[in-house]
Design a binder for these strands. Structure first.
Lengths: 109, 109
DNA sequence: TAGGTATATTGCAATATTACGATTAACTAA
DNA sequence: TTAGTTAATCGTAATATTGCAATATACCTA
């Protein structure tokens, strides 16, 4: 136990959950917001901006990279991170399918 | 440690992360999809549909209720669950701010 | 080559999550 | 009142997440 039973869900359900998990931490939300505003950044800037240890920020960047939401280009001693547009758009689409409905209440709840 | 430092983030960042966390499990995605399709349901139906133990489904429903994304009305021996439209719309808005941007790539990444 | 800078990785402790059996609570019907 | 139904809660085991110090890696410059 303690392990999600991924095999009983559809690929799409697992995919949505995976992307949501990446966004499910305020530090990673903060990183995404920073990248949306400034287009690119290096790890050190985020350490100053957010106020977590360098190891911790590096770990959060790794999770964002794990679903390819961001990508990093090595530039000398530092790494320039930016949003991966294709994956960003994919998440947009997936989330919109689940959360973008125009619901009407016809039930008695 | 092992505890998120919520105090260093904005309320909005924490809010987005909290809502994302609720969606960050395929069982809860499946529950939401079921509710979007059928408008309402009882716990027992989800147990059959999804294939997890009753206690587990009840726990997932509790998490969806914890952010008021769903609400439950007691109807005899069972509980009728449905989506809370106001909160659904709020999540729509919050996620759209973060993920609904029309980004253009002007950087060299 | 040696020292400095930037990031990733490792190891660890604290806490959270997932899942389920067993039990409890609350209502319904015989 | 008693038995059956439905859902919530409790307790527990397994695993995942968060955060950081310490260390490793990689590159740049003098």
């Amino acid at each position: 136990m303690g392990l999600t039973k991924t095999e009983i869900y559809t690929d799409r359900q697992n995919e949505i959950a995976s992307f949501a998990k990446v966004i499910a931490h305020p530090a990673r939300v903060a990183i995404l917001q920073y990248l949306l505003k400034h287009e690119q950044c290096i790890c050190g800037t985020l350490v100053e901006e957010i106020g977590l240890a360098q190891a911790t920020i590096s770990q959060h960047l790794k999770e964002l990279k794990s679903v390819n939401l961001i990508k990093g280009n090595i530039e000398g001693t530092s790494v320039c991170y930016c949003i991966n547009l294709n994956v960003y758009k994919k998440i947009q689409k997936l989330f919109n399918e689940l959360l973008g409905r125009d619901i009407k209440l016809n039930n008695n709840c």
